[in-house]
Design a protein around this nucleic acid. Structure first.
Lengths: 345, 345
DNA sequence: TTGAAAGCGCTAACAA
DNA sequence: TTGTTAGCGCTTTCAA
């Protein structure tokens, strides 16, 4: 490794025969530099391959162009897809990302984490971890103390915080009403873990849609999974036992729906004739299930991008007005995709 | 939002009636502070809820405890799983992560990206984007100029750089030899995109295993996909036409294998009797395919963690010896998982 | 249009 | 054991 001495703004200034300040002006595209000086310095910067230290800049300018992202469960489809949208959004707006993944979904001890993000002078935080149980409890205590713009993804609407969420309730309605429209009357549900906000919303939508249609909706008609295919296997087994007349089922996500299909094949249940199935998420693979799966698509990429845009908007506003912007709640609409599992070819 | 003035080390020092340096010593757990002074300062820090600026620290100490991660294709299972391992590894070792996602897999214009990471004084880089086509070409030109420790994931072995990779060739062997051991003789292959190193390795292993067993292995016996289920659908269609006597197929990943199963069901092909199928990756869902899929499991979580550990080792070594450590290549072994798609119950 | 001085919040190196 | 001085690499503010 060559011992290329780290070059700094002072080095550039010295070689150019100008003050450090003039170089800084060129760096920041300030107008008050003569054409020739600017040209000369730009050339020199290129020649020396000089790159200013973002850290020193942050320290003295109070602008870090960095945002903190708190996520959880990156091994799952949803969170990583959302993160992908966030990286795109950040890239487009020229921001860097400081990434933290919660070690468990339920983590409630978030204050140190937030402080570690603030230590890097991040300008804001995107909270991309799902809302589960009381893992938003800290909001009440800390929100006012945090003193950094923060935007939440996919949680229960609250007027006092900024949220970008996918309308899970609407998604559940779309799924259930679709099954009702197919003249199914005995519609079961396999939910996600009910301490998850998203799972709750989907289940509630199922209940409400059933009630609206004048259909029954009792305990034996639903079972709780944990999003994994394995849990879906157990859940469908339970339903087939307790609710044998079931002729349709709305499953809380595509992974669990996959094992519903597997169980159906093993037991000789015909889909969609004997049992119509709708999933949730719209993962690419769902089209290639056997039969291909009807599902509710949520655009998590878009969710991530929007979150970045919204956060930056808040940051910029705060910079200008020196006071907190009115929080904003944005809801994205999911879409029903009808495929073979609810509709014979 | 309360206007809680930002408190700094000087503020703490002033209130404690000591010098800034003494506070710094406490912060850094230096031994040369008296018990009482330390206690007093620690209490004050707690009381004031003071958190030192990581940025100021990095600037003056030349240690940032930050590593840059370059990834690509976060929407896919492998990259996000690997990233999850990286976040865990970094957390365990007390490092923060600066995340960049390449906008396209093939991106070859990496110099500016690396400079942007260096601008944050990252101590090293984990290159977690897959090797595709000539997207490692820059290594030749830039490696010596980069002047920052960098570790690569899952690429062709080279003695001059540090690599942590999963042995894809071995994985391909395991898959093919398993099929051969089942007395299948007409074994096809659906590869990933062949400009990917991983896809190449798997295909080569298939060819070599076939040759070793004295089995033929011609062009009509394999087809190229792009990892997606949709491409698998086309590929299996092609093979069934060109290679009708096929009695087994090694598919480059689980997603593509999914649509092989779908096609088989649609065409009345019995799996595993008429056609045995092995996938690659070992995604959790593969157990719930119909039938459940035999596959080659690769531990991408572990890959990510190891990468962090190895990188930090290099960074620390370099700090001590002031010269580059001998590059290291680590290979992880994948494992064959036998399930219903190759073995009737 | 340019430069000098001060400072961002911290640590390193030395002195007391 | 503690404090002083200098500086990390940059921007801000003010003066020329």
């Amino acid at each position: 490794m060559i011992d290329k001495k780290k070059i700094t703004i002072d080095e550039v200034a010295k070689r150019a025969g100008v003050s450090r300040q003039t170089v800084s002006r060129v760096l920041n595209h300030r107008p008050d530099v003569s054409r020739e000086t600017r040209k000369q310095i730009e050339d020199l910067i290129k020649k020396l391959d000089y790159h200013p230290s973002a850290i020193a800049r942050s320290l003295s300018s109070k602008k870090s162009y960095t945002i903190g992202v708190v996520t959880a469960g990156l091994k799952f489809y949803g969170p990583s897809r959302t993160l992908s949208g966030i990286t795109q959004g950040a890239e487009e707006l020229g921001y860097s990302l400081l990434l933290k993944e919660l070690s468990s979904f339920g983590a409630n001890n978030v204050y140190p984490l937030i402080q570690r993000i603030k230590a890097y002078h991040a300008e804001g935080i995107i909270w991309a971890a799902p809302e589960i149980g009381d893992n938003r409890k800290w909001l009440g205590d800390l929100l006012s103390e945090i003193n950094i713009p923060i935007i939440f993804l996919t949680m229960q609407k609250r007027e006092d915080i900024s949220i970008v969420a996918i309308d899970n309730y609407l998604g559940g309605k779309l799924a259930t009403e679709h099954l009702i429209s197919l003249r199914r009357r005995n519609i079961g549900h396999i939910s996600g873990p009910l301490d998850w906000w998203e799972a709750c919303q989907r289940k509630k939508a199922w209940e409400d849609a059933m009630a609206s249609a004048g259909l029954p909706c009792e305990k034996r008609m639903w079972a709780e999974g944990n999003w994994s295919s394995k849990s879906g296997k157990f859940a469908i087994g339970e339903l087939l036992t307790n609710f044998p007349e079931m002729d349709a089922v709305f499953v809380g996500n595509d992974q669990m729906a996959l094992s519903v299909l597997q169980s159906a094949i093993e037991r000789g249940i015909k889909i969609p004739d004997d049992l119509a199935v709708v999933g949730f998420d719209g993962i690419p693979e769902s089209e290639f299930y056997s039969p291909s799966l009807s599902t509710v698509y949520q655009n998590q990429d878009e969710l991530g991008r929007l979150a970045v845009q919204e956060l930056i908007r808040i940051v910029d506003d705060k910079l200008q007005n020196d006071k907190m912007v009115q929080p904003h709640q944005i809801m994205l609409k999911p879409e029903l995709i009808v495929r073979g599992s609810t509709q014979a070819r």
